[in-house]
Design a protein around this nucleic acid. Structure first.
Lengths: 298, 298
DNA sequence: AGTAAAATCGTCCAAATCGTCCACGTTATT
DNA sequence: AATAACGTGGACGATTTGGACGATTTTACT
């Protein structure tokens, strides 16, 4: 059952963000926070908007966690829960898991690195070793994709100007959608504007896109490579082009390993998205809010 | 369409506007909202008035929604709007377009057949003829996919037991996601339970899935075939297996054309999803709209 | 038709929010 | 160091809101 979207009053928001009620009202009038006004003039704020602001400006979140943050952010428990959702073909459960994690204020980066990635890696291995059928693997993949798109939508609602741009995808011959989708999500969370070209992107076309869009960051997620030497060759060219345009090229994914990774040391980040996000934050530190003013009394 | 004028109770309106019931009553008395009173004094509000108020007050139209005032589907205008959304890289616009179409009560089948399919076909053609770059095509594809997933989520909330099962995907070597996604959506709209295996499904594995899940309908959407003779061979086998399990196999997609289509006449539906849905409705007449009033006693 | 459950009515009042104002820290400027 | 500019948090009366209450209406089911 679809839960109605949760609205908060100014007092609740103030409590949650540890600021005064007047400040919340002022922020709404200023446009920092979105709000609806009832006929009587009472403001109603969307929980997701508040959370987004809190994350973007890295607030020290208040003690109050309006949404039920029942499930702790325990990766192991979440992994089991996620696996169960996939096994039972319950897209609703998978979506709810991600949405609740997001709403409880936990980092999506941790969700991606410590829950989704390991579980999907396990699914892939189970398929390769014949423990599950191809169709099962496909179905779970589709479920995961569906949940990730849903999660992405929560992050996209409010776009702010002045964000740096990142773009990328998976190289030609690589059909996998999930890695780029996770990258898109964690970059959105980090406050970037993101263009995801999806799987199977020819690198020469990507170079043209870099020239057109002038991003600050370009990612390439390779889960599977058809022609390694050619890939290495093209990536070197691409890296030059990116550097010329002032963009940083980073490589990641299961296929970038061992010897191959060594020959591409200039920009590999391995498999953890954490590394990518730290890099991104180095490129564009999230702006600090001057939010000082009068401190708490006493 | 069925019931262009549906009345809402104060409680429903209150829930929709995230406001107390007393407040709705007061607003009606105040004239902010129009209402018709029954002889017994119960207020009946018109959906249009509520929507108008929500819009005036800048509400993020949220939650409930199904039967809005009728919307005549204007394929040409919608196509232009959709193309503009894709061109401007505005995922929000694309999502809003689909969502509003759904909420206005128009058929998603028509949306898929007369808006999305033609536009995306045009995008594909533009790419092949070199009018747009591969990356542009990829980006628009990703935008469309994102919007379709969002649309699918709106349909998934209304789950009802006892629905027949349909499953399918794109055959091995076919990487396209959108056709199966559209099929999934129109089948959900028609009241089916759907399992979408996505692109690149080996047909032998699909046969095993049929044996396991016992669907009533199996679709195969082929946009691109690597090995036609093999495909024909495997499809014949698959069709036999499906028939043995009591399932109907249907083929569709751009690749099923001309000579190939002739050799597979037993189950092709061409490119219009309308044909598929009519077939599905023949197998299982669509459910009726739930009735109002006192809920089932428990 | 009759019955009982569920939803809504009208009225009330406590609690919450509104807009406005100003004293008070912080930051930047002189 | 002194001062202006700015954002914050709280206080104020006026207004709005939302839930509780018993009485009534609507609806589903027999």
């Amino acid at each position: 059952m679809q839960e109605p979207e949760r609205y908060l009053s100014t007092a609740e928001v103030a409590n949650y963000l540890s600021v005064g009620v007047s400040t919340v009202k002022r922020w709404v009038e200023k446009g920092v926070l979105k709000a609806h006004k009832t006929v009587g003039g009472h403001r109603k704020l969307l929980w997701d908007d508040v959370l987004r602001l809190a994350k973007e400006e890295n607030f020290a979140l208040g003690t109050l966690a309006p949404q039920a943050s029942v499930g702790a952010l325990e990766p192991i428990a979440l992994r089991k829960e996620f696996e169960a959702a996939l096994r039972e073909e319950s897209s609703a459960a998978a979506q709810a898991l991600m949405q609740n994690t997001y709403r409880s204020g936990a980092s999506l980066l941790a969700l991606a690195d410590d829950v989704i990635a390991p579980v999907m890696a396990r699914v892939g291995k189970d398929w390769q070793t014949g423990r599950i059928d191809v169709c099962d693997e496909h179905q779970r993949t589709q479920l995961c994709i569906s949940a990730l798109f849903h999660l992405k939508r929560l992050l996209e609602v409010q776009v702010r100007p002045g964000r740096p741009l990142a773009l990328g995808g998976a190289p030609e011959g690589d059909p996998y959608l999930i890695p780029s989708l996770m990258i898109e999500i964690v970059l959105l969370e980090a406050g970037w504007r993101v263009v995801n070209f999806g799987p199977n992107v020819p690198l020469d076309s990507l170079a043209r896109a870099i020239a057109d869009e002038r991003p600050k960051l370009v990612w390439l997620s390779a889960s599977h490579l058809e022609d390694e030497p050619r890939f290495v060759r093209e990536v070197r060219v691409l890296s030059e082009r990116a550097k010329a345009e002032g963009a940083l090229l980073v490589l990641g994914g299961q296929a970038i390993q061992g010897e191959l990774a060594q020959s591409l040391t200039f920009a590999t980040i391995g498999q953890r998205l954490e590394v990518l996000v730290n890099l991104a934050k180095g490129l564009h530190p999230p702006p600090r809010r001057p939010r000082l003013g009068r401190p708490r009394k006493s």
